[in-house]
Amino acid sequence: MLPDCIQLIDNPAGKTFVVIDHPQVSARIALEGAHLLQCTPKGQLPLLWVSPDDPQLPGKSLRGGIPLCWPWFGGDRPAAAHGIARRAKWVLSTATEDSQGVYLRFDLPAACISEQLPGEPWQVYVEFRLGAGIDGQLTTTNVGAEPMKLSQALHTYLPVGSIHQARISGLDASCYIDALDGWTHKTQAGDVQFNAELDRIYYGNGDNLYLHAGDNSVVVERQGSESVVVWNPWVDKSLRLSEFPAEGYLRMLCIEAANAGPDARVLQPGEQHTLGTRIQHAD
């Protein structure tokens, strides 16, 4: 039985969401993809950006929030980009509340994994603790007899008042792979700022990051992550993206806790790894 503050509700298109209306936080999570779409702590601005153009249809991944990229990121395999988790049907296995917020756990059924990833005996679940901030943890175990490669990301869309004023600190002197310049390796100088399309994998850095975005500035902490993806599609790509407004790039950017690029992991039989992110408004 779910706590009174948590309900399962279908939208007009028939897509099922876990809707949280707690005194400390309101939030919405799609069962498909275990996809945290919205989270607003009491008396604060939303922590996540979601596309107003997305019809949120059943069977379709959502544009915004925190899509789960698992068990590969980007084009690490010739199959569909970002893995199977975003469109899979997860199971809400635990939902509790206390005075500070809510806790939810979603499991990806073993039958789904064996059907879509034959020969890859993974076990995976995601946990969300929602209240004054977002605490999300994606835990993967290799339950097979052979080592298996894992790359992944918590593909977090964050809102900004204007991309022209937004900047990210905490990555100065970090190495990164520039996906828009032949996957060349470069070094960051100063804060990350935006004046064109940007798509980078920063690696060798597990520090806290700070998004300076006026009233909606946030701090992003990471767990089990030495890489972070920073992305904004800018003008031309915005026009090519599905379910994305033409000027949406002005109001969002992505800071994604990841195990990507040189930070991809190899899990030995029985080994477990947790990728986590904690997001809260900066003081």
Score class of each variant (00 low, 15 high):
Val143Thr: 15
Gln123Thr: 08
Thr156Arg: 09
Ile113His: 10
Val124Gln: 07
Gly161His: 10
Ala173Tyr: 08
Gly131Phe: 10
Cys112Gly: 00
Tyr125Glu: 09
Arg167Pro: 01
Glu115Gln: 15
Val124Ile: 15
Glu146Leu: 14
Gln116Gly: 02
Glu127Leu: 06
Leu117Thr: 00
Asp98Thr: 07
Arg167Trp: 10
Ser151Tyr: 05
Gln123Arg: 12
Met148Phe: 10
Ile134Met: 02
Gly119Thr: 08
Gln100Tyr: 03
Gly119Cys: 08
Ala95Asp: 02
Ala111Pro: 00
Leu154Tyr: 02
Gln137Leu: 13
Pro121Asp: 14
Thr94Asn: 11
Asp135His: 14
His155Trp: 07
Ala111Thr: 11
Ile163Lys: 03
Gln100Leu: 12
Gly144Phe: 04
Leu171Ala: 13
Ser93Trp: 02
Arg105Asn: 05
Leu150Thr: 04
Gln116Ser: 11
His164Ile: 07
Ile163His: 03
Gln152Phe: 01
Asp107Phe: 00
Ile168Cys: 13
Leu92Met: 06
Glu97Met: 11
Leu171Asp: 14
Val126Met: 12
Val102Gly: 08
Tyr103Val: 12
Phe128Met: 06
Glu115Tyr: 05
Ala153Thr: 11
His155Val: 08
Leu154Lys: 03
Ala110Glu: 11
Leu171Thr: 09
Gly101Thr: 04
Pro147Ala: 04
Ala132Thr: 13
Ala166Pro: 09
Val160Cys: 12
Tyr157Met: 04
Gly133Phe: 13
Gln100Ser: 15
Leu108Ser: 04
Asp107Ser: 12
Tyr157Ala: 06
Trp90Met: 04
Val160Phe: 08
Phe128Pro: 01
Glu97Ala: 15
Thr141Lys: 10
Ile134Ala: 04
Val126Ser: 12
Ile177Thr: 10
Ser151Ile: 08
Leu130Arg: 08
Leu117Pro: 05
Glu120Phe: 11
Val143Arg: 13
Thr140Arg: 02
Ala153Gly: 09
Pro109His: 05
Ser99Ile: 06
Val91Gln: 15
Val124Phe: 11
Gly119Ser: 02
Lys149Cys: 07
Gly133Lys: 05
Pro159Gln: 04
Tyr125Lys: 09
Ser93His: 00
Gln137Pro: 04
Trp122Gly: 09
Val126Leu: 06
Gly136Ala: 15
Ala88Lys: 09
Leu138His: 02
Gln152Ile: 00
Leu150Gly: 01
Lys149Met: 11
Thr141His: 03
Ala153His: 09
Val91Asp: 15
Leu92Thr: 00
Glu127Gly: 04
Tyr125Pro: 02
Asp98Gly: 04
Ser169Trp: 06
Pro159Gly: 07
Ile113Gly: 12
Glu120Ser: 12
Gly101Arg: 07
Ile134Asp: 01
Pro118Glu: 01
Ile168Met: 07
Asn142Met: 02
Lys89His: 14
Gly170Ser: 12
Ser162Ala: 08
Met148Gln: 15
Leu154Asn: 07
Glu127Ala: 11
Gln100Met: 03
Ala88Cys: 09
Ile168Phe: 06
Val91Pro: 07
Ala132Phe: 03
Leu154Asp: 03
Thr94Cys: 13
Pro118Tyr: 05
His155Gly: 11
Ser151Phe: 07
Ala95Tyr: 06
Leu130Ser: 02
Gln116Val: 03
Lys149Val: 13
Ala132Gly: 13
Thr141Arg: 10
Ser174Thr: 13
Gly131Asp: 01
Glu97Lys: 13
Val124Asn: 09
Leu158Gly: 10
Gln123Trp: 01
Lys89Ala: 12
Glu146Lys: 15
Leu158Arg: 05
Leu171Lys: 03
Gly101Lys: 07
Asp172Cys: 05
Ser169Val: 14
Leu92Asp: 00
Gly170Ala: 12
